[in-house]
Simulated assay, not measured.
Amino acid sequence: MEKNWSKQALIYTKSLKNDDGSYSFSNKNNSSSCLSTSFALLTLEVLQQKNSIELDSISYILKHQQNDGLFYDSIMEKNNKNQHDYKYISHQITYHAIMACDMLDIPLPHKLSFLNEYKDIIYLKEWLHNLNWSNPWLVSNNIMFILYFFIYEQENHKLDNSIYIKTIINWLIENQSSCTGYWDYNKKSTLHNQMAGAFHFLFFFDYMDIDIPLKNEIIKSTLLIQEYDGLYSYASGGGSCDDLDGIDLLCRLFNCKENEKHKNNIKKSLSKSYHSLIKNQNIDGGFCWAKRRNFKWKNIIYLVPLRLILQKKNIDAKNSFLMKSKNIIYSIFFKKKLTWCYSGIEDYKINIDDSDIFSTWFRVLSLTLIEKTLNNKDNIIRKKCGIGFFKKC
């Protein structure tokens, strides 16, 4: 497998660094924040360049922590979509900032006192129950943040959070779908969104040496929704978040003894993903969210998602058809480029095919996972808990 992509990604990541130690989200808008800087440091971790991280970048991140332990960033005020509230965004920034600091064994100036709200078993169970499970992709982030904070606090502040950690893990095991292996809490959400949600949970099972339940169902569901291009957006062309979600699940379960019958299919799936991921790297070395305007007439046969129809995944089949149709219409009739912005943050708005540091982190991680899985390399990417912790079963 070619390796030049990593050298180019490193050049791109370093090009985003500013004089104050921060990293911009993209060269296209030069907006820097605690969040984009955390993404950059986590990218350097995957590229095995932790030693190149300078103190000014760590200092930049640490100055954003408040007395209650949360990290605050002015970009929170620029949030322009209702699906993310203040608490979600603040937890999101805090999660990535702590991951970056923990990677380098840098202690935080303040304890995580904001977490006390969740240190009540009755409250914690009610919170899990009352999350909006119509979109597991979204609410699984909420759970990932809180579970990670509990683990980080226990390991670094010597607090016994085991009862709260077990409560969340046991709740997940009890509410896992026996049909798909994912989590939807019987809300009948799309299989695609359930897959993205499962990604936010499985690394915790591995990190705590807990056997992942329903491996066979997870593999079958994930293979079912992979697109013809090897990626995981129903519109085709992938999506840096969607693609890592599916790839991580398959890599994580690749060597499970009880799933030998799926091994060849997973290998083919990951190889296809790898070659399509490479195409999402731009000339500047960075990766983009997606190359969405890529319609070719020979791919018209994929407009009707037969696999999903045959498996009676009606919601997913409908989404697949509509998203591909929209992509075709845009490709043929519209010249204006599609845009996206991470978590609805207006400062991060760029063209969908422009390079950005979040997409670079996730695509570099996806490619690294595939290489380590298929080449049976040393599986250490991240030693600490969090996205990027990987242990093949």
Rank of each mutant, 00 (worst) to 15 (best):
N4E: 14
Q8T: 01
I11T: 12
T13G: 02
K14C: 07
S24Y: 05
N30Q: 12
S31F: 11
L35G: 08
T37G: 05
Q48I: 10
S59V: 11
I61L: 15
Q66N: 12
Q66F: 03
Y72P: 00
Y72S: 09
I75Y: 02
N79S: 15
N79R: 11
K87C: 09
I89A: 02
S90L: 12
S90C: 10
H91N: 13
Q92C: 14
I106C: 06
K111C: 06
S113D: 12
L115F: 05
E117K: 15
H129E: 15
N130H: 11
N132F: 07
N135H: 07
W137K: 10
L138V: 04
V139K: 13
I151E: 02
E153D: 14
I163A: 13
I165T: 02
I165N: 06
I168G: 04
S178C: 08
W183S: 05
Y185I: 09
Y185R: 14
Y185L: 13
N186H: 14
K188T: 14
K188Y: 13
L191Q: 02
H192S: 15
A196K: 08
H200G: 02
F203Y: 15
F205A: 09
Y207C: 09
M208W: 08
M208H: 11
K220Q: 15
K220S: 11
S221D: 03
Q226P: 01
E227K: 05
A235R: 11
S236E: 01
G238N: 04
G239T: 07
C241I: 09
D242Q: 12
G246W: 01
D248W: 10
L250Q: 00
C251L: 06
C251H: 05
R252S: 14
C256K: 10
K257M: 06
S271A: 10
S271D: 09
H275K: 11
N282L: 06
N282T: 00
N294P: 01
W297I: 14
K298M: 05
K298Y: 03
Y302I: 01
L306S: 05
L306I: 14
R307E: 06
A317K: 04
F321H: 00
F321L: 13
I328E: 01
Y330H: 13
Y330A: 07
I332E: 08
L338E: 15
T339N: 08
W340R: 01
F362E: 00
I370V: 04
D378N: 15
I381P: 02
K383F: 09
G388Y: 13
K391L: 11
